[in-house]
Design a protein around this nucleic acid. Structure first.
Lengths: 219, 219
DNA sequence: AATAATATTTAGGTAAATCTAAATAATAAT
DNA sequence: ATTATTATTTAGATTTACCTAAATATTATT
C-alpha cells in the first residue's frame, strides 16, 4: 500500500484521536489536521476506498486493522526519529516534534529498522511514548491519566500528549519535564485550572488546556 | 524562500547539469528529472518568477546566485545524509542515493548543521563528492575526467557520477569502488567500450555508458 | 538558402488535495 | 415534537505539478 504524505497524516491523526473514543468525528479530525471538515470528508472517501478506514456518512471514522498497521508504522518512524534527534543530535524534547513530523514520511523499512538498531531499539521516545516494534507491537499504550483527570495528590509526569512547541516551551519554562514530581495544591472548579507545586519551587497555576495534556501517574 | 520538493529537485538537477555546460536545455532537464519538456517549461517560468534561475524562451536555463545557494544547501543535505546512512547505519554506497533523495528535502538548517557536526563535519560523501559547508563553500568540484575521456593508462577511481542503483551494483560486482586502481588494456573504437584490469583480477570490458560515469584521475 | 529534423513552447486537460458556500443530516433545546 | 444549533456532506473552484497534442523556433542537412 503506497500512501501519500497527506494520507499518512490523516491515518496518524485518526489513530491518535481514536484512543479512548470509539470513533473519530469529521470536525475533530479537521481541527487536529488544521484543515476544513469538507477536506476531511473528501479524504475519508479516499481512505475508505483504500480499505484503511471504516467510514459511513455521518457515522464517524475508524481505522481498519490494515489502517492501524499503517498508523503504527508511521508512529514507529516518528518516535524513532525523535529519539535520534534528542540522543544523537542533542536537540531538546520540545524541538523534535516538527522535525520528526517530516522525517517520519520517509517510508523505508530497512532505514527504519537500521535506525532502531542504531539507537539500541529503544522502547520509549523522548516524550515518554512507547515505540512500536517492527511488527507493530507496542508497550502499554502509555501512562494512566491526564493531570486534568487524575485524582492523585502527588504524581509524576510520564508524558505530554500534545507536542506543540508552545506547550513544550511553557512546560520547560515552568520546570516540568519527564519524571518531574508534583503536588496538587488546589483544583478550581470554575475554570478547571489547577494549582501545582514542584519541590523547592513556588506553586503556580496551570490552565485546563495544559493539564489535559500532561500525562501523569500517582506516586 | 520556501521551495516545494519539486522545485528543489529542479534546482538540484539544474545545478548538476550546469557543471561544464554554460546553460541547461529544456530537454536535458526533462530527461534528468524523468519528466516531459513541457513540464520543464512550466517550472522554468515559476523558478524564474522566484528569481532562482535566469531563463528566456529558447535560451536555456542557468541558476542565479540565489539559485546556486539553494542548490548547494540541497546538495549539502543530500551528501550529509548519505554519510550518515553509510557510516552510522551501515548501508552500502549503492543503497543510499534514493534514501538521501528523500531525506534531503527536510529543510532545517539546525538539523543539517547538527547532523554535520555529529558526523564530524565530513568534507566528502561516500561517493567521493565534496560536501558544501554551512556557507555553501565546497572543496574542488571533484575529479578531473570520466574514464571515458581519460587518456591515462593507469588511474584511480575517484567518484561515480551516476548514482543509479543498477550502475552501483554493477561496479560493486566487478570490484570497482572508490580508490580502486585500474589499468586500461584496450579501447575499442567501434562501440567505445574499454577493456580494463584491476590488479590481481582478470581483465573485463565495460560499455561506454559505464565508463562515462566513472570519474578517475591518472596515477 | 530552403528544407528537414529537432527542440521548445503554448494551449488545454488531469489528478491530488485543498478551499468556500450552500445544502442536508443529526443533535440539542425549548 | 418542533425548532434551533451544530455537524457533515455536496457542489463547484483553486493550486500545484504534471500530461498530450499542436504550434512555433532553432538547428542541421542537403
Amino acid at each position: 500500500m503506497n500512501l501519500s504524505v497527506s494520507e499518512e497524516n490523516y491515518i496518524k491523526s485518526i489513530y491518535k484521536l481514536e484512543e479512548g473514543q470509539d470513533s473519530v468525528t469529521t470536525n475533530a479530525l479537521a481541527y487536529e489536521l488544521d484543515t476544513k471538515p469538507a477536506s476531511v470528508t473528501d479524504m475519508a472517501k479516499k481512505l475508505k476506498e483504500k480499505k484503511l478506514i471504516a467510514y459511513e456518512k455521518y457515522q464517524g471514522i475508524n481505522l481498519t486493522p490494515e489502517g492501524k498497521k499503517a498508523a503504527l508504522q508511521i508512529v514507529r518512524r516518528h518516535r524513532l526519529w525523535e529519539c535520534f534527534l534528542v540522543e544523537k543530535l542533542a536537540f531538546s524534547w520540545e524541538e523534535v516534534h516538527e522535525l520528526a513530523e517530516e522525517l517520519e514520511h520517509v517510508r523505508s523499512e530497512k532505514l527504519t529498522n537500521r535506525l532502531s538498531e542504531f539507537l539500541g531499539n529503544p522502547a520509549i521516545d523522548p516524550h515518554g511514548d512507547p515505540i512500536p516494534d517492527a511488527q507493530g507491537k507496542m508497550g502499554k499504550p502509555r501512562t494512566q491519566t491526564s493531570l486534568h483527570k487524575s485524582q492523585a495528590k502527588r504524581l509524576e509526569v510520564m508524558a505530554v500528549s500534545d507536542k506543540s512547541a508552545a506547550l513544550l516551551e511553557f512546560l520547560t519554562a515552568k520546570g516540568i519535564r519527564l519524571g518531574t514530581q508534583l503536588d496538587v495544591i488546589e483544583r478550581y472548579a470554575f475554570d478547571n485550572s489547577i494549582e501545582i507545586k514542584i519541590r523547592n519551587q513556588p506553586a503556580f497555576t496551570i490552565s485546563e488546556q495544559v493539564s489535559k495534556n500532561i500525562m501523569v501517574k500517582a506516586i
